[in-house]
Design a protein around this nucleic acid. Structure first.
Lengths: 352, 352
DNA sequence: ATGAAAGCGCTAACAG
DNA sequence: CTGTTAGCGCTTTCAT
């Protein structure tokens, strides 16, 4: 049972069969025009007949054309180290695709600063890239970028968060709503039938509210009509003491509280819960950043839903390879698995 | 912030710098000998100085050397359809590596039939492959194969299950013991403190007992010294009625039973549980085969631990690419993540 | 509109 | 032991 492939049918063979030289064949293959209709037909026929597949190695060898992808990504900060994780994915992907002339240029912006985003968009528009891989944080500027590239046939792929209905080529990331639903399903398993649930979040203006709302929506969808009592805690001070007091108050007022779903900033919420309190609650949240991994290991957090930033980065760059080099069709969206991470399997998720 | 790579330092440049022609340079690069020590040194130095990296595209283009990997894998049957899933992974990987001349040749054997395995080993030894990707089901024959390839520098990589301490190049798969521990951890979350647990399995002689024992060992490790009451049910008839009766008897005799860990054959066990009974138990087991996916969807199974067969196949073949084409060093083992799959995230795990 | 020809960087065979 | 040379399959330029 052999799965072979090498038939050595090349541009030469199809030229022969079509009674032309390789010149016109190449032109037809790349839609470069300048071929009479008749020979064009014959060549196309020959390509079909012989089942020709181009040798990407040879084509790449000669052409020496380079592709540079602009990566528009929020800056990793101490507060939001999440964006650091993508780097290993980019590196991994580059190892595979750089022989084919694909480079990337990472342009960071401040997640809470539209002006810094605009600056990068200006840069992208001015420098002219062969592809854009971006987190569409700000709507208007994203639209401006898409407008510019609309007719230029330059692939724009969103990652991490999506804005549906725009003219981008594709999206790669998680389905936030489903991730919330999953969190609910899992939490439901780990608490008693009568237990109350708290939805907690830390509001910061630099955050991606669309994504967080979607998580919450999915979570609530699961519990709709179940009669579960759902409480809410939202902090917008960022102050440890304030959070700690707020959480404590909720614990005291709600003796039946058993589960906590943290939409974002789980490290802050987990820190506000004392070990003694923790025994009575299950906590689930997001993001496999180092701080959270520690909290998972010491039992402060029970479950994390992983967004797999490395995978997003790796697969995303390979999409550009598929599109630019292999000329493969690209689906409008690629949803990555929603991984459930706990103490017992965290070590298998720490690297790509 | 550019991450570029193309410096166009080729074999020619290093020849120039070492004051030789490209002939000896190529020989040094491939350790083909026939180069005087002095020039060899100069060439090596030049390679270092200029930071030369070979252009794999060009090298591949010229050499047209083909590599064929023998894949020794159990036959998928109706009883054990598990092995079907690998195919999509093989296909996916081939898309990427076949331009580099890597082919695979799939040799199936009967999982419960050592003679059929021996036949395939004979075949492999006789035909002479450039790499072996295999499930080491039978010890003695595996040893025979390894012996033969020991000095031939042919990479042998195990997958799915491992036999440690042998001379194979690497292993890729899951850590079975950790997967059992994970199952225990998760099940522990979903049942009450006082609930009893049942470990169920269907013994078939064609199964991989090493792997199953490891799962059980990991599971028991978690509960050691916790005071949990652990029951056991082992069927070796394969008969539906018998299983059904056995399970029912256990349910009746053990009112505190809350969790069921199924080491293997979860479809059989799940079928033996009536929907009415199911409300009172949590069931966790293995293998993302179609039958189990349906049972997960209709609630008969709560959790499946995925072995990611597609990923094993995909990554495994890419290891041969790393080794044979890129000449990268290969680690002795690659453990894939232990994915927790439930109704709410199954759809994201159905394909590669 | 088509054909001829020069390489891309590397391998491998051969001549010196 | 070292240098030369002919391609691998394709792209691209330049005549025709």
């Amino acid at each position: 049972m052999k799965t072979s492939s090498n038939k050595s049918i090349g541009i030469k063979e199809i030229a022969e069969r079509a009674n032309v030289s390789i010149g016109p064949v190449d032109k037809v293959l790349h839609n470069r025009g300048g071929v009479s209709k008749a020979t064009r037909e014959r060549i196309l026929q020959a390509i079909k007949d012989l089942g020709y597949t181009p040798n990407i190695l040879a084509s790449r060898l000669k052409s020496s054309r380079d592709y540079t992808i602009a990566v528009l990504i929020p800056e990793a900060t101490e507060i939001i180290p999440f964006w650091l994780a993508h780097n290993t994915g980019f590196e991994e992907a580059l190892k595979e695709v750089s022989p084919f002339g694909i480079n990337i240029s990472i342009l960071t912006f401040e997640q809470n600063n539209e002006a810094s985003f605009k600056l990068r968009v200006d840069e992208v528009l001015h420098d002219g890239y062969d592809g854009i891989f971006m987190v569409p944080v700000f709507y208007d500027e994203t639209i401006r970028l898409l407008q510019h590239y609309k007719d230029l046939n330059v692939p724009v792929i969103f990652f991490d968060s999506n804005i549906p209905g725009l003219s981008n080529l594709s999206f790669i990331g998680n389905n936030s709503k489903d991730s919330g639903y999953l969190a609910a399903n899992l939490l439901d398993y780990t608490i008693s039938k009568k237990g109350d649930i708290l939805i907690a979040s830390i509001e910061r203006k630099e955050d991606n509210h669309i994504q967080f709302s979607a998580r919450e929506e999915g979570f609530l969808t699961y519990f709709k009509n179940t009669g579960r009592r759902i409480l809410r805690f939202t902090d917008n001070t960022g102050n440890e003491q304030t959070i700690s007091k707020g959480i404590s108050a909720i614990f005291n007022d709600n003796p039946h509280l058993e589960g906590i779903f943290v939409v974002n900033g789980i490290d802050k919420i987990a820190a506000a819960v004392t070990p003694a309190q923790k025994c009575n609650y299950r906590m689930i949240g997001y993001d496999l950043i180092e701080k959270n991994i520690q909290l998972l290991k010491n039992g402060a957090i029970d479950f994390l839903i992983s967004q797999q930033p490395q995978k997003q980065a790796y697969q995303g760059i390979k999409l550009f390879y598929d599109y630019l080099i292999l000329k493969k069709p690209i689906a409008p969206s690629y949803y990555l698995p929603l991984d459930i991470v706990m103490k017992a399997n965290i070590d298998y998720y720490r690297f790509l």
